Computed example of a mutant assay.
Amino acid sequence: MEIKRRNFQGVLNILSFNRHFYVLGFIALALIIGSKFILNWHNGLFWMVILAFIYGLTMPLFVSAYVYDFSGFYNFDWLKKMKIEDTKNKFNLNINAGFDETSFIIESILPNSKLQVYDFYNEKQHTEPAIIRARKVSLFYPNTQQINSNSIPLNDNSVDNIFLLSAIHEIRIQNEKVQFLKECRRVCKPNGNVIMVEHLRDFPNFLAFTIGFTHFFSKSTWKKAFEEAGFNSFKETKFTPFMSIFNCN
């Protein structure tokens, strides 16, 4: 299946999945503007607040356009550079939280390898409105299976590569993340890899998403989770200042 992304699909996704944030933001902005006619605002403070709101509403869209629409992320050249072996005896997993834009792309890059897709979304545990909306428009890769985050239904040492692409930050509880990564470690072959892509809770993403950067986790949080899960290496490569690619084994 050929995947052709629409122009500005990344930005459109952000607007669609987080529309509650933008609705509340524009309501708050309208109330602040209206209050100028009632309250005795200091003119400098008023415009500082207005500009801060406009920045908070628009900057995530500019950064999302850069990362998802113009940086080439979905061309997956970054994955091709890893030179992952693609043969019939290779077995890869792509695990998501119910929104899948990547499985068909991975299949096209590694066409000879077997690919299994798992979805760990649990409506009682993963309650972010954005991911609930994203699931409604997600592509469906054939034979995608629903799993619990603490149980991957495969034998030990059976998988060559596991892809976690902007997905497991939806696991909000640290212990659940560790248990999930322990399962990844268990099913990986001794020379297998976990390839994770995430925004981080760091200064560039604070500039990009303001308070929204708290939806992500810091590099130290991820490092601790991988170490507790039994991984020996945790290598980071920056893809734009706002996104990190981790290769762990």
Rank of each mutant, 00 (worst) to 15 (best):
Ile132Asn: 00
Lys124Ile: 02
Asn148Asp: 14
Gln116Gly: 00
Leu115Glu: 01
Pro142Glu: 01
Ile131Glu: 00
His169Phe: 15
Ser158Lys: 11
Asp156Ala: 13
Val178Tyr: 14
Lys136His: 06
Val137Asn: 07
His126Tyr: 06
Cys188Ile: 15
Asp160Glu: 09
Val178Trp: 14
Ile131Cys: 02
Ser158Gln: 11
Leu115Arg: 00
Glu176His: 15
Val117Ser: 05
Glu128Gln: 06
Pro129Cys: 01
Pro129Met: 04
Arg135His: 05
Gln125Arg: 09
Leu164Gln: 08
Glu176Asp: 15
Leu165Tyr: 06
Asn112His: 08
Lys136Glu: 07
Val187Ala: 10
Leu181Asn: 03
Asn112Val: 00
Glu183His: 06
His126Trp: 02
Ser158Tyr: 10
Phe163Asp: 05
Lys182Gln: 15
Lys189Cys: 10
Ser149Asp: 14
Arg133His: 07
Gln116Glu: 08
Pro153Asp: 12
Arg172Cys: 09
Lys136Ser: 07
Ala167Glu: 07
Gln116Ser: 03
Ile171Glu: 03
Asp160Pro: 09
Glu128Cys: 01
Tyr141Arg: 10
Gly192Phe: 07
Val159Phe: 03
Gln179Lys: 15
Val159Ala: 04
Glu176Ala: 15
Arg133Val: 08
Val178Pro: 10
His169Met: 15
His169Asn: 12
Arg135Leu: 07
Ser149Val: 03
Cys188Ser: 15
Phe180Trp: 09
Ser149Lys: 09
Arg135Trp: 03
Asn157Ile: 08
Tyr141Trp: 12
His126Phe: 07
Ile152Gly: 03
Gln116Thr: 02
Lys189Gln: 09
Glu183Arg: 04
Asn150Leu: 06
Asp119Ile: 03
Phe140Cys: 02
His126Ile: 12
